[in-house]
Design a protein around this nucleic acid. Structure first.
Lengths: 138, 138
DNA sequence: GATAATAGTTATCAAAGGTAACTATTTTAC
DNA sequence: GTAAAATAGTTACCTTTGATAACTATTATC
């Protein structure tokens, strides 16, 4: 049970920027894969659509993300605003410091190994049972 | 982000026994360290006391755990009831199957490595910052 | 063109956590 | 030996984060 203390601590770090974990996860994803639809975000987070709608709205209200016209009138494609990208860099500092702290004494190799294994497990979960999100099954 | 799919799936497994993750964690802990106080449980889960009070009450109402007189009139020492222990065995089957499934293709060694690393990280979190629970600081 | 599927939203509920403020005991300090 | 501090737990209440059900609007498919 690594998760509880990790999340607890991450949230106190993010609180410095008046952010919560769920919001940060979306900002983080958008920094990499930039215009992303809500469904994409929903799949990434492993969370139902209404949950994403809410979190994205919060970020929208704060001017961190904005909509870009997608090829479809249905889809809502989001990207980080200019301010959002700057914001990301700020949070990044906090998160980097946090990560460095909790990874003290753990080598690059060890970390890589752990990541690979956890990724294998994640794939197993998503493949078999229904670690997946409802939308995908229709 | 291994956690979300893992918890989601675990919860659907536990639902077969009308259980939730937080409850299961306590049952699991009590199977090993049997009479445990609420503070102990609270530290184990990395969660504040009121949260534990609630979860333990639920298990108490279902006759899964019961109080044993501790050396102190303050502390509430809990153990699994007879029914609770039987219940544990049942759930164990479900959880074992689940674990086997998600660990498919992952060797003993790999798993051990991952556990060691994650444990190191957990220790780092608890040591430094405040991955800890409020009670401990007073 | 009617039916399916897809993307998103709204409303509402539940799980799981937190804080503040409290009671009842037990320890510690003077 | 009592007053103050610490410890264990509880109650009341709030927040975050998730889920479901039922819906609209748009696009694909047959």
């Amino acid at each position: 049970m690594l998760y509880r203390p990790f999340e607890k601590r991450l949230n106190t770090e993010l609180a410095k920027h008046e952010l919560h974990r769920a919001q940060w996860t979306i900002i983080y994803y958008l920094e990499n894969i930039n215009p992303a639809t809500l469904v994409e975000l929903s799949n990434y987070q492993g969370v139902e659509k209404p949950t994403i709608t809410r979190t994205v709205s919060q970020l929208e209200e704060r001017g961190i993300v904005e909509q870009v016209p997608g090829k479809d009138k249905r889809e809502k494609r989001m990207q980080l605003t200019k301010a959002g990208k700057q914001f990301y860099q700020e949070i990044r500092k906090t998160v980097d410091a946090y990560e460095e702290e909790i990874l003290m004494g753990i080598s690059e190799e060890e970390l890589k190994t752990a990541i690979v294994i956890m990724d294998d497990i994640r794939k197993n979960i998503i493949q078999s049972g229904d670690g997946e999100v409802g939308t995908n099954k229709n």
